[in-house]
Design a protein around this nucleic acid. Structure first.
Length: 937
RNA sequence: GGGUGCUUAGCUCAGUCGGUAGAGCAUCGCCCUUACAAGGCGGGGGUCGACGGUUCGAGCCCGUCAGCACCCA
């Protein structure tokens, strides 16, 4: 065996074997278990969040596969309409070309090229991480079959009257020139201005103060070109009398009405609000109530269009703002400018301010109870069932409180705008004739037959594509063959669990539930495990622009500082941030990043996966788990060295020592805990339990305790120990395998045959389960006593600074019968682990020589001081111990002295307290006696 | 404005049933002892954000406040 663990070689050895052997495909004879991967966007490469999420899914998948379940992990990728189109457009721009230069067909070809590149990269990353997805079923949201499903999805909803086309105010991204949904708009707080303008009153009207104008306040002066009213609160004494009158809209020379509406906040600004129905959602609603005209003043790129006065036409919205303000000021109509904090709606993809904009779009009805024709509306048919699925427990969120987020959103849901003015995506299956009639069916031929259209009637397909989420919302269905009733669909739908981040509960999770129920009558998954976000060590979100991203494979393989700097500083949207990024990177990773291997990285993710919490990624954790892998490697090396071909008669009679029975007993408890942690998705506790058991119990204590046995000459005991070493190790490897697949497979291949196991791979071996009958409390108590005894001796040695090479004499005073019996049985272990001579029990009344002392219950462990021990050091040690004991004892005495405690606490607590006090008093007496003796020297 | 989560050792975090606070990393001392120096052995380090309440007893339950993060409007 190689001396140290080399993750690279191991990973390379197993990756291909697993996949080419077909072991990732469903095959168990047990119950179906399935996980649908949240399909990564084909926008580039996978980041730490993906690696984290995939670790969890793979751990679950491997666990259930090992349990014999018929396990499917469905892989695939998402075409991610806007996001991918943007990436390709950016690349074109670098080459001096553009989407419009190429035209739709050529552009889409380019995107497919990119998709191939990005998709391959992503697949490769998934493979490298050891993710056991069933590649034979890999899917893409624009595969032909998938596309059919998307069309079916739309047509069915349309046939049920749940899809409509309408002219509505939508969020318009003037850079991408497409509508986007509410969810794709983020509100950002910015410092802005509040401009106050004078609008002259028409018809000689006057305010209460005798002014011939009113003042309106606005954060968006340019929209006044589209104003069609001024609104005041109907109860506002200042303006009440003006309602029904008009103002002369400056610059446009239109007269617009003054209306009263209680939407107006009297406290805000002047209490007079300009109303622009075409460019503000609230104004639009108010306009509808007052039947105001709607004047759209923007082009699709948010420049001023021909509806506005000639002077402003063609100006960009921000340019127009300056001009409007300047012109009003020139006319003496600018009253004042205040600083103002405002919320700006920003497109989450383009990063620019989006405009409320009036266009024709397709919507999914999610809000109507009943349709005009009496059929159920979207609220009844789609939204309510999705709420009920979680309320009624058909779907369970883990952690549970995410269901509140889910409910809140669904209960306040708006109709969903699903059309996008993009080129990359599923073309909407709707056709128009020259008269603007709309026909919806699966294809043009079906349109003609369905609507009985003449063969020569010219039809034009809708240019728009679907919102990406309108295709990913059927991911659990379409990947299994829906709308066809395939065997896979029957078996693996609903999937067992969805593993996802909270950021897409609305975008994706809720929509899958809605559509799964609507289209297939059942929920898409039984549980939703919601994990946190991966952040950097400072708690910042990782992003390219912040320069703090980590490529998971750079942790796996390691990366030099120079390489890392290059990666982080090239291709930045804002190249001027490069020096700052460089500085921060040099600070965080002065020597680059050391390779830790896949297993360690996965284990790190698991250990950090505490529920309801974001994760600060800390490299030192990964390094620690790399060491853990090495520890397992070396422990295996020891076991093999001592077990391989060591026993000519391995099946012979075996006697199990206390240590053997102890580790077997402990193993049962660990197995039970592991099962519990998997069930509750506590990968952090799982990793901790296994780490603790392997390192602190198996390696630190058990392996050490086997040494004297294996050096001894009791064949039966040696055989028992070898057998236990092997069997426990083999079990440990299986326990760890879902979290660290590579090293466990590699080691299992060597260990399993010796442990009497056969099989081509660990990944299809049964996951260990506890056998309660092997729990041995007596052996556990023996070993706990032994550990305490050994610790006592070691504390003396360490406290006295005695070299580990010196074999110490050892005396024991005041040993109880049970202690004496244990000493007799376990002396070999004590001697081996502490390098002492055989302990000698002092007879009753026998005066011991002056010694350094450790207490174990009522028993004193003594190391005679002659020639070995520093008087002052021992005194210091004893006094420290005494101080601790005194302080604890004082606390406990105070508690027992409290009447309230004595009267109120249950008897068992009081009993425990009394025992504790008695022990501490005894200990204190012993310490005092010992201190006195040494002081007297 | 409404909501959620967080605040525990120098750092990153566990803490289940309310019963004397744990891990990893870092740190200090000794040790290259035949599985492992990516290691072994031993040690130090905490007013559990603040205040109040419930309780015999609170890191944990309740309330108020502060700070941080996120979500929604």
């Amino acid at each position: 065996m190689e001396k140290t663990f080399d993750p690279r070689a191991i990973e390379a050895r197993w990756r291909d074997t697993w996949e080419s052997s077909g072991w990732f495909a469903p095959q168990g004879s047990g119950a179906p278990y399935s996980i649908m991967i949240p399909p990564p966007n084909v926008t580039g490469t996978l980041h730490m969040g993906h690696a984290f999420q995939h670790t969890i899914m793979d751990a679950l998948t491997r666990y259930h596969r090992m349990r014999g379940d018929d396990t499917l992990w469905q892989p695939g990728t998402d075409h991610a309409g806007i996001a991918t189109q943007m990436v390709v457009e950016r690349n074109l721009k670098l080459q001096g070309s553009s989407r419009l230069d190429l035209g739709r067909e050529k552009f889409v070809e380019k995107v497919w090229e990119w998709k191939k590149y990005s998709g391959d990269t992503i697949e490769n990353q998934i493979r490298r991480m050891g993710s056991s997805v069933d590649w034979s079923r890999k899917a893409f949201t624009m595969d032909p079959g998938y596309s059919e499903a998307v069309i079916e999805h739309f047509v069915r909803l349309h046939e049920d009257g749940l899809i409509y086309r309408g002219k509505r105010l939508v969020n318009w991204d003037p850079v991408l020139q497409t509508a986007i949904s509410d969810l794709e708009v983020v509100q950002e707080e910015k410092d802005g201005k509040l401009w106050h303008f004078r609008y002259p009153l028409a018809g000689g009207a006057k305010t209460q103060d005798g002014l011939d104008y009113i003042v309106v306040a606005t954060t968006r002066p340019e929209t006044m070109l589209g104003d069609t009213a001024v609104a005041v609160h109907p109860e506002d004494e200042r303006y009440k009398h003006l309602i029904g009158g008009k103002v002369k809209l400056p610059l446009s020379d239109r007269e617009i009405p003054i209306v009263g509406d209680d939407y107006v906040d009297r406290e805000f600004g002047t209490g007079c609000v300009k109303i622009t129905p075409a460019h503000d959602f609230n104004d639009y609603a108010l306009g509808q109530r007052h039947k105001l005209p709607v004047i759209n003043i923007f082009t699709p790129t948010a420049a001023i269009n021909d509806e506005a006065p000639a002077a402003y036409r063609g100006l960009d919205r921000f340019e127009a703002r300056k001009r409007v303000v300047a012109d009003l000021e020139a006319q003496g109509l600018l009253a004042k400018i205040d600083d103002h904090k405002l919320k700006l709606p920003i497109g989450d993809r383009s990063g620019v301010v989006v405009e409320p904009y009036l266009t024709d779009q397709w919507f999914v009805d999610l809000t109507r109870k009943t349709l005009d024709d009496g059929r159920p509306g979207g609220r009844t048919a789609i939204t309510e069932p999705a709420i009920q699925a979680v309320e009624g427990g058909s779907i369970k969120f883990v952690p549970e409180n995410w269901s509140n987020t889910y409910f809140h959103w669904l209960r306040n849901i708006q109709d969903w705008c699903i059309s996008r003015q993009l080129w990359w995506g599923h073309r909407i299956p709707a056709w128009y004739d020259a008269d603007g009639n709309i026909y919806v069916a699966r294809n043009e031929a079906e349109v003609r037959s369905k609507y009985k259209l003449a063969a020569d009637l010219a039809l034009r397909q809708d240019e728009d594509v679907f919102d990406t989420w309108f295709s990913s919302d059927i991911w659990p269905l379409a990947t299994l063959g829906w709308p066809r009733e395939t065997p896979e669909l029957k078996k693996f739908y609903p999937s067992s669990v969805l593993v996802t981040g909270f950021d897409i509960i609305f975008f994706w999770v809720a929509r899958m539930v809605m559509m799964g129920l609507k289209l297939h009558g059942d929920v898409p998954f039984r549980e939703v495990y919601v994990h946190g976000l991966i952040r950097d060590s400072e708690g910042q979100k990782m992003s390219k622009s912040k320069g703090n991203v980590l490529d998971p494979l750079d942790l796996v393989d390691g990366i030099s500082l120079d390489e890392l700097l290059k990666k982080r500083t090239t291709g930045l949207m804002k190249p001027e941030t490069a020096p700052k990024i460089e500085k921060a990177t040099r600070k965080d990773y002065p020597a680059g990043i050391e390779a830790v291997g896949v297993d360690a990285l996965r284990y790190t993710f698991a250990s950090l996966a505490s529920p309801g919490r974001d994760i600060r990624f800390d490299f030192s954790r990964a390094a620690g788990y790399r060491n853990f892998c090495n520890k397992i490697w070396n422990a295996t090396s020891y076991v093999l060295m001592n077990c391989e071909e060591q026993d000519p008669n391995p099946d012979g009679q075996a006697w199990l020592s206390e240590a053997d029975r102890w580790i077997i007993s402990r193993l049962q408890k660990v197995e039970a805990e592991a099962a519990e942690h998997f069930k509750t998705y506590r990968f952090d506790l799982l990793s901790q339990t296994l780490y603790q058991f392997v390192w602190n119990e198996y390696c630190d204590w058990y392996l050490e305790l086997t040494k004297p046995t294996l050096r001894g000459d009791n064949d039966s005991a040696k055989r028992g120990t070898r057998r236990t070493l092997l069997r426990v190790l083999e079990t440990i490897l299986r326990l760890l395998h879902p979290l660290m697949p590579f090293v466990t497979e590699d080691l299992w291949q060597r260990v399993a045959p010796l442990a009497g196991k056969t099989g081509k791979t660990i990944m299809l071996q049964p996951y260990p389960t506890a056998q309660p009958e092997k729990i041995d409390e007596a052996a556990e108590a023996d070993v706990e006593w032994l550990k305490a005894f050994i610790l006592g001796v070691r504390q003396i040695r360490s406290g006295m600074d005695i070299s580990p090479k010196i074999t110490l004499p050892l005396l024991v005073q005041d040993a109880a019968t049970a202690d004496a019996e244990r000493i007799a049985r376990l002396a070999g272990s004590i001697m081996a682990l502490t390098n002492v001579q055989e302990p000698r029990l002092l007879a009753v009344g026998e005066e011991p020589p002056v010694s350094a002392t450790s207490l174990l219950g009522s028993m004193k462990i003594l190391v005679p001081m002659a020639g070995l021990i520093d008087k002052e050091a021992e005194l210091a040690r004893l006094r420290k111990k005494k101080a601790q004991t005194e302080s604890d004892l004082a606390k406990n005495l105070a508690r027992m002295g409290s009447e309230k405690f004595v009267n109120g606490a249950p008897p068992e607590v009081l009993e425990r307290e009394r025992t504790r006090i008695a022990q501490q008093q005894q200990e204190l007496a012993a310490l005092n006696e010992q201190i006195g003796k040494i002081e007297a020297l």
